[in-house]
Design a protein around this nucleic acid. Sequence first.
DNA 1: ATGAAAGCGCTAACAA
DNA 2: TTGTTAGCGCTTTCAT
Lengths: 334, 334
Amino acid sequence: MSTQDRPTYAEISSHAGVSQATVSRVLNGDERVHPDRAKRVLESVAALGYRKNRAASALASGRTGLIAVVIDDDMRVFNDPFWSAVSSGVSRVLQTAELQTLLMVSNMTSPTGAIAHYLNSGDVDGAIFFQLHSEEFVSKLAARGLPVVIAGTPLSSADFTYVDSDNFGGARQATHHLLQRGCKSIASITGDINASAARQRLDGYRQGVRDFGIEPDNDLVAYGDYSHESGIEQMRVLLSRGVEFDGVFAANDLMAVGAMAALEEAGRKIPDDVAVVGFDDSLIARTTRPALTTIRQDITELGEAVAELMIQKLAGEETFSRILPTELIVRDSA
Amino acid sequence: MSTQDRPTYAEISSHAGVSQATVSRVLNGDERVHPDRAKRVLESVAALGYRKNRAASALASGRTGLIAVVIDDDMRVFNDPFWSAVSSGVSRVLQTAELQTLLMVSNMTSPTGAIAHYLNSGDVDGAIFFQLHSEEFVSKLAARGLPVVIAGTPLSSADFTYVDSDNFGGARQATHHLLQRGCKSIASITGDINASAARQRLDGYRQGVRDFGIEPDNDLVAYGDYSHESGIEQMRVLLSRGVEFDGVFAANDLMAVGAMAALEEAGRKIPDDVAVVGFDDSLIARTTRPALTTIRQDITELGEAVAELMIQKLAGEETFSRILPTELIVRDSA
DNA sequence: ATGAAAGCGCTAACAA
DNA sequence: TTGTTAGCGCTTTCAT
């Protein structure tokens, strides 16, 4: 809008008394320019209030400076502050590398969708996926040479670069805490078991009990889907099975809160009759009563790590997936 | 990355046997092209798997197809699913108009910041602001001809185009509900009073009591800041004042939950001794016990409305700010 | 180390 | 209605 006729290389070039090529070199950090001339260029840039036209730059160089962040338009995602915190971290870090964040909300990331279209069009320099959609689709993009980083753990063993919290370790930590505080029998309510995080947390729970010489008992595991309702339901299921337990690890805070409601409904006192540990350290963990003991993941760092890996990829450096440590936050429920 | 040497207008043009100008016209929806030739162009496009190069298009046309969504890097924003739901709506609607969403997280939207820089560079076709930062800054951008739409109500009476929930009406509705269920004296805990929404909710509460012939009493108003902690604190303040009340309207759910905790701590039963109504209908309203009666705002629609207004602005149409209706959700707390 | 010059792929006058 | 033709502003060989 409004061709404010801003200065171009032509103006800078004549104002500084150098060629446009030199202006370009200076503005792109090319080393081989005499410091004096570089200084003059920079002065002219400042004097004329010059700002680079990204479209022109993108056209000429083939680099757009845009990184897509692809999110499933899944209610889970948008009711969960988790992903917005990750996005925030991503965006902030990308900005330091002069990269912009393109937010793409996909209702279905089918290879024929508008997003697939866009991602294939070379209009972005890279793509970050939140919870891996169709891994096949993502593999295809990666194979085409598009730098891809994933927030979360891919289901397949494919060699994606990804960053995730230590779901396994966190769940194990939670279980250990319950056992250490004296619980004898620990139950667990899993998240949506189709998601890798839920599986890892279940595995961590199992390892956790094993660490204390207890054989995992399938009767103590109930399969939820991360929702508050499923926390209530699955706790009722556990109670109805008649197996004894005095500790519960729920794969996220929301289910933990649901489970606590069901426990109280059944007349069990928390934490005395049954101790409860969640996962996420979301807002709800602090505000629920009793306050929820939980596993904190550093989601802002997750976002930052993802962005850093992307920057490394773009620079052609080798990248290594990262697992971020979690932390036990002890409150009143366990 | 990887110059997949994708087809350009040159290829389409020769494949379809028309000029590049015609290709451009067809691809940009120019009416005055003979249907037959348009059809041929489209076929060639499909046959060759052509995809437009946005950078080239942007350079030539001056339109980037990018809309910035500017969000304050404020913990409030990223702990609150509110804004991610709005972004989701924005992004989805913009996509239908072939526009992409550029997510810009500002730590300080100072006119000298990187974001200001970007916004001033003509690299975006428009900007959407979440909660108005520096209105002066935004006015300046708008004055330069950048289409701007705001999610939330501007503090000043400036003529921005904005979309907001009916904060006044919702608060009034909440107050009416308390009065209708038999409460005789209603207290209120406000949000951060520097924010327009908090002021509107306070005004709505006052109007609500007045509607029932009661004169608003300043001793019944406590000033919070939207945080859970402030809900607890301000409820304690209210209780310590010694003024009687049997109903409370908190300006958001988080404070309402905090207030309930403080009430129970003081031995007051909810809703019998004191009924509580919140605002937002966030996740926490459903999961807290007793479940919170609250005012729901349709935040996805808010995002969609913002995006629609932006599209209208870009089309040069006149735009009118919108206030979206709220809905009372009755649960157990009132 | 610097400059000249040829595009990058598309759009939009202008002509026809 | 269609085609011709200049660019848009920057990057990048290729010379020097």
